[in-house]
Amino acid sequence: MTGITTNATLFEQLGGAAAVDAAVDIFYRKVLADERIDRFFEGVDMEKQAAKQKAFLTMAFGGPNNYNGQDMRNAHAKLVKIGLDDSHFDAVVENLAATLTELGVSEELIKQVAAIAETTRADVLGK
């Protein structure tokens, strides 16, 4: 194994911005089709929502981001009121892992992505 590979960041190992582009289409489709969580996406503007998913994936992939916990709380506050809880957050993380598996990403890297996604749980659920 060369030094370049071992020193590469998570984002680089996943394939950078191109990987995010490939993942967002699959990921958002899984989320919309998931009966456990689809009601939270009713009537949303799909383009805008996809852009948000892309920002989220970039962050979870360890890429450049300006994650703001307060924005995340504000954006999800209405959903928490209508019942958004841990089970739904878990479902999203599950869809994220399934997306990466579909794209041939290794178990090890998927764990790292899931761990970053996990850091947003408290903000998303307003805890």
Binding site: D25, Y28, R29, L32, A33, M46, E47, A50
Partner: peptide, 13 residues
Amino acid sequence: SKRAAYLQGASLK
């Protein structure tokens, strides 16, 4: 239809 076409496989772009 946008939603349906996307869920049935078309890329949003």
